[in-house]
């Protein structure tokens, strides 16, 4: 029963969040920060699979986020919104509530397939090549989207607010807060299951010693591809949530700077620590908001924090440990592995 405490706690937190958003106890701004936090949790936890657990170096996480954002946005606008290019909504508005998670998952699925396209050529070789290939993939995706006039090109793509309005027409609830919370929960749950499975352990073995992993009969290629697809797929889900939260996407929001943010969160939290990733995503989001009044100077302070981190705590906040390793009393409520 005690093992369920965490789940119950999260349910209470989510309900409290939804209720306070519903009755206007927290304003729109705080809601948007909370949603951004949720998206960032998905991004950092999913990138941690590759850069943390597997020890590879992927620098283009935002590319997969972009794929997920665009695919899910186009799909949802096609189905539930009136768009000059895509025409009248294909399905009645009440289905939007049921189908939104499906649309987000399709976005994630397409992102996972694009992750596979990047993974296959890059895993023929090892090490730095993945970094170069993923950076290139990031640029390719952005240029492709910017040059597709059908989906708005550099002007971006909008209409997702109508989809949210379609959901509102069913019941007036803070839908996006709910979806982001559920998405973050789903992602962290999935990643936790993955890293404690033989796949996750195989990924850690690859990180430690790839030759040893091979001669222990671990199918390293299969694990690498699975890890990469899961990671990019979840980034796609994060992109889908991000796009519907703002109601507008633009290719430049997924540029190399966004990928860098994802990496900062992974290294801040600790490579190979899931609770570290969640924690650092929350901290990083808050930090960016707190530093907002500094405007452009923010982009001096954030890299400075990274430099200081590498100097004084190179393993990140958590190292490769989890919260219960620091606070043993938590084990009573929550077992990681």
């Amino acid at each position: 029963m005690k093992q369920r405490t965490l789940t119950i706690g999260l349910v209470i937190l989510f309900v409290a969040l939804a209720v306070s958003a519903q009755f206007g106890l927290v304003d729109r701004y705080i809601q948007s920060v909370i949603m951004l936090m949720g998206v960032n949790i998905i991004l950092s936890a999913s990138l941690n699979i590759i850069n943390g657990y597997m020890g590879e170096f992927s620098c283009g996480h935002a590319a997969f986020m972009c794929v997920g954002a665009y695919v899910s946005s186009i799909l949802s606008v096609l189905l539930f919104a009136d768009n000059p290019f895509l025409g009248a909504p294909l399905l009645p508005a009440y289905l939007s509530v049921v189908l939104f998670p499906v649309v987000a998952l399709i976005g994630g699925g397409v992102a996972a397939v694009s992750g596979l396209l990047v993974a296959i050529p890059s895993f023929k070789t090892r090490g730095d090549y993945l970094a170069i290939i993923t950076i290139a993939a990031n640029y390719i995706v952005i240029s492709a989207v910017e040059n597709l006039e059908v989906i708005g090109g550099p002007r971006g793509f909008m209409g997702m607010k109508q989809v949210v309005r379609a959901m509102d027409s069913v019941a007036k609830l803070p839908w996006m807060v709910i979806w982001v919370a559920l998405g973050a929960w789903f992602s962290v749950f999935l990643i936790r299951r993955f890293v404690s499975s033989t796949y996750g352990k195989g990924a850690v073995a690859i990180n430690q010693d790839e030759v040893a992993a091979e001669i222990m009969s671990i199918n390293t290629n299969k694990i690498k591809v699975a890890a990469f697809m899961l990671s990019s797929g979840l980034a796609g889900v994060a992109g889908a949530l991000f796009a519907h939260q703002y109601g507008y996407v633009n290719a430049q929001s997924f540029n190399i700077l966004k990928s860098t943010e994802c990496m900062v969160m992974v290294y801040l939290g600790g490579m190979g620590s899931l609770s570290g990733s969640v924690l650092s995503a929350v901290l990083f989001t808050l930090l960016l908001e707190v530093l907002r009044p500094l405007q452009i100077i923010k982009w001096v302070i954030v890299p400075l924090i990274l430099i200081l981190l590498m100097q004084f705590r190179p393993e990140g906040i958590m190292g490769n440990r989890e919260l219960p390793d620091f606070f043993p009393w938590m084990r009573k409520f929550y077992r990681f592995k």
């Binding site: 073995a205 001669i215 009969s217 390293t220």
Partner: peptide, 20 residues
């Protein structure tokens, strides 16, 4: 390589040990 170990039952003790 993983099938060499698990299907053919050939084990390698590599140079430099490669233990975890």
């Amino acid at each position: 390589p993983h099938d060499v170990v698990s299907k053919l039952n050939v084990a390698l003790v590599p140079e430099g040990r490669h233990i975890f």
